[in-house]
């Protein structure tokens, strides 16, 4: 196996702690790894990237060669698109959806997300929201790590052990928050995949996944949501999910089933949101 990751984000977003957990797990799994970081000037709010390679054979280059990248793991959407030319044809992009706007010329976030969604393999995760739900927005990086798990070639239980180890110094609460964040990221990554497999469109998938409680979606629910979006209440549902009104959505199949039976849009809002986000 060989996993070549380009980790990217903005200085100060904690991409180095993602690398740390992956390195520790690779060591536990008996794999070779090389991780190239950039420190110094670029750390101050500028674009940062780190190359991380894991393999069951010796690794030569510290940098990922163009065309050998298997995963872009980004904290936010603009940065996720910068290094696409390093990805091989099968390479995937996993990114947080919340934009980090610290420049005046930041593009329209929806257009960035559409661009990511037009790539052959991608997972978009509301990393900050899920991290906050897990107890701290700073754990967004662990949400992303969870969402990226299928692309890493690492065993989930070993990743969890590494997270526990990496945050042990900071106390039990921080440890638990980061583990919960990782788990909800895993669930959110799976939910995203289920939606896409069921044939939901990019915006519908994003809107639904941005609301799922704990990031969780039951497999049987995905085709029902697709049916709902294709039906007479589809546009209104999308508008509510993508809107500003706070609220979470349950991931069990009973919800889309009930909404499909609803018939008229008047009660959509009260039935849709189970809890305040």
């Amino acid at each position: 196996m060989e996993t070549n990751i380009i980790l990217c984000g903005v200085g100060g977003q904690g991409i180095l702690s993602i690398s740390l957990v992956i390195d520790m797990t690779a060591l536990k799994q008996g794999l070779a790894f090389k991780q190239s970081e950039v420190h110094g000037m670029s750390q101050r709010g500028g674009s940062v990237q780190s190359h991380l390679r894991i393999s069951d054979r010796p690794i030569w280059s510290d940098l990922v060669p163009r065309g050998r990248g298997t995963l872009i793991l980004s904290v936010e959407p603009l940065e996720s698109l910068r290094y696409v030319d390093l990805l091989g044809p099968e390479g995937a992009v996993v990114t947080g959806v919340e934009p980090h706007v610290n420049i005046p010329s930041y593009p329209d976030a929806e257009r960035l997300l559409d661009a990511v969604a037009s790539m052959p393999q991608h997972v978009l995760v509301p990393a900050e929201r899920l991290a906050r739900a897990a107890g701290s927005a700073r754990a967004a990086n662990m949400v992303l790590l969870g969402a990226a798990l299928p692309y890493l070639g690492l065993k989930a239980e070993l990743v969890e052990a590494s997270i526990a180890e990496a945050f042990a110094r900071k106390g039990e609460k921080v440890q638990r928050v980061n583990l919960d964040a990782f788990r909800s990221g895993r669930a959110a990554g799976e939910a995203y995949g289920l939606c896409r497999e069921a044939g939901l469109g990019g915006r519908e998938t994003r809107a639904l996944c941005s609301r799922l409680a704990g990031g969780v979606l039951a497999p049987e629910a995905a085709p029902l949501w697709r049916e709902l979006f294709a039906g007479p209440l589809g546009a209104a549902t999308l508008e509510l999910l993508a809107g500003r009104e706070p609220g979470q959505v349950g991931g069990e199949p009973a919800l889309p089933r009930a909404l499909l039976d609803l018939g008229q849009p008047e009660r959509l809002r009260e039935r849709l949101f189970v809890a305040r986000a």
């Binding site: 903005v10 200085g11 100060g12 000037m41 670029s42 750390q43 101050r44 709010g45 500028g46 674009s47 060669p65 163009r66 065309g67 050998r68 990248g69 603009l78 940065e79 698109l81 910068r82 696409v84 030319d85 390093l86 990805l87 091989g88 044809p89 390479g91 610290n102 420049i103 010329s105 930041y106 593009p107 257009r111 960035l112 661009a115 037009s118 790539m119 052959p120």
Partner: peptide
Amino acid sequence: LPTQRPPALELPTRLPCLC
């Protein structure tokens, strides 16, 4: 080696700045 094509979007550079 073959690679994926970058998006058609223009991506503004993000320079380092004072915190």
